[in-house]
Design a protein around this nucleic acid. Structure first.
Length: 428
RNA sequence: CGGACCGUGGUGUAAUGGCAACAUACACGCUUCGGGUGCGUGUGAUUCUGGGUUCAAAUCCCAGCGGUCCGACCA
């Protein structure tokens, strides 16, 4: 459904809000927050609550569309549920008093109490249950991309753990556990596709995590980074993988590892310990929420049975932050092309490059055009490094002498001189 | 929720009991023009809030609010 896609976009940097900052903000330690704030991608309103500014919002939308595309490929239908949720629903699942990060508030007028949604099992279960469900309607997959609110006891690490964050949550509804298992495994693949497309595939592991009271394991998607708040153990055993120089790569969360210090897949005992951030998780809910809400379907024989459920979450802001944590250097961000706000950063130095800007526009290339007049070349270079757009393009006296334009890939050392006609092919 | 540290122009810092200073950003002028060019002029702060001590508080004390980090917690 391409009507959700971000339109192809170009921008003159002289008009872009806001300016970059020269200094790191003093109240942030994490790399993601420092770079994103300095670059003007986000602004901090208070601890754990950030605004997305034009560049950051653009990145967020790119990530959102990668996720949306993959969820639609997984059969998901997109919906949007309310943030304000009735207390009653939370009483039904007995989570009103036990969900310890639940924001609660009362209407000033009626004194009625509400929750601000930290998750949506309490809404989607009765929502689906309003319609008479037959086995013919199942499986059913519904997802949303929406703001979640959690009263975190301690926010931390910039946008990696906040009180307000955007999340994709998909809920699946099945006739039986076997079908849930099938979809659960399918979703693992879709999730890894998303993380690969976002440029963190090779740093992201599907980990065995606690399944709580529902199953022995749930699974988390953990991206290895020093900024992570979790510890994972990656299996480095070579059993059954003689031809590989990598270990078996199965990953286990610390809470599981403490009880069971061998690999659940290859039974090996050799591990590397890494810090990681959980960017996604998937759960087999089974009848945990369908049962209290009376969410049933009618089977072939006319019997009413509890619907079997699964849920699957990805934190978008957290994923964005994790991408920055993985892809940066001392000068700034190095966006993977798939999520970069623009493809080309066109710098105007000692002569007009308006023609080239128009040319790129015409060819549908997303370009940030640094047309600022009162900014020196050095500042433009520094800003380009900070903003991290994949290709930096320059036309100047120097390049014109060779009859060429200069292209530099962010993160690579040497600029290249190429002919203008080769530019489109070069950045493809 | 326990502990530690912190709160000064938009941003980053200085002043530790005695005229709130500097850099940057911003405005104007000149200069420079391939890695934050140099210079001048100007705007901009009730020093987080409230109370206390003192002749005098950004500075010391108390309380609150806010921030970061460590720990606990984390469907």
């Amino acid at each position: 459904m391409d009507f959700f896609n971000v339109k192809f976009k170009t921008m003159r940097q002289s008009k872009l809000f806001p300016k970059t900052l020269r200094e790191d903000p003093k109240d942030e330690v994490s790399i993601n927050a420092k770079l994103l704030i300095r670059g003007g991608f986000i602004d901090k309103l208070m601890g754990g609550v950030y605004s997305f500014l034009p560049l950051g919002f653009c990145v967020l939308k790119k990530i959102e569309n990668i996720i949306r595309e993959e969820m639609e490929a997984a059969g998901g239908q997109e919906i949007l549920m309310p943030v304000i949720q009735p207390k009653e629903n939370w009483l039904i699942t007995k989570r009103w008093d036990t969900y310890d990060t639940l924001f609660k508030f009362a209407s000033f007028y009626s004194k009625t109490e509400f929750a601000l949604g930290p998750t949506h099992e309490e809404i989607i279960s009765p929502l689906v249950g309003k319609f008479s469900l037959s086995y013919k309607n199942l499986p059913l997959y519904l997802f949303q991309i929406q703001t979640k609110l959690r009263d975190e006891k301690r926010v931390k690490a910039g946008i990696l753990r906040g009180r307000e964050f955007i999340m994709k949550d998909l809920y699946s509804f099945h006739t039986d556990e076997k079908d849930l298992d099938r979809y659960y495994e399918k979703m693992k693949k879709h999730y890894m596709n998303i993380f690969k497309k976002c440029g963190v595939g090779d740093k992201t592991f599907i980990t065995f995590a606690s399944g709580g009271t529902f199953s022995k394991y749930s699974h988390e998607f953990q991206t290895v980074t020093e900024a992570g708040e979790d510890k994972i153990f990656i299996c480095d055993s070579h059993a059954g993988k003689q031809n590989s120089n990598k270990g078996c790569q199965t990953a286990i969360n610390k809470e599981i590892f403490d009880e069971q210090n061998f690999c659940p897949v290859c039974k090996g005992k050799k591990f590397k310990e890494k810090k990681a951030i959980e960017i996604g998780n998937i759960f087999k809910l089974k009848t945990k929420y369908s049962s209290p809400f009376g969410l049933k379907f009618t089977d072939k024989d006319g019997n009413n049975k509890d619907v079997i459920m699964g849920c699957y979450g990805i934190g978008l802001g957290r994923l964005l932050g994790a991408i920055v944590e993985v892809h940066h250097d001392s000068k700034g961000i190095i966006w993977p092309e798939s999520v970069s706000p623009f493809k080309i950063h066109l710098l105007e130095l000692d002569r007009s490059v308006r023609d080239l800007y128009a040319y790129l526009n015409k060819n549908g290339i997303e370009v940030l055009y640094d047309d600022r007049k009162d900014v020196t070349a050095g500042e433009k270079f520094n800003d380009a490094d900070l903003l991290g757009i994949p290709y930096r393009v320059i036309v100047s006296k120097k390049t014109l002498k060779a009859g060429k334009i200069e292209v530099k890939k962010r993160g690579s050392e040497k600029p290249k001189l190429i002919l203008k006609k080769d530019l489109l092919r070069y950045v493809k």
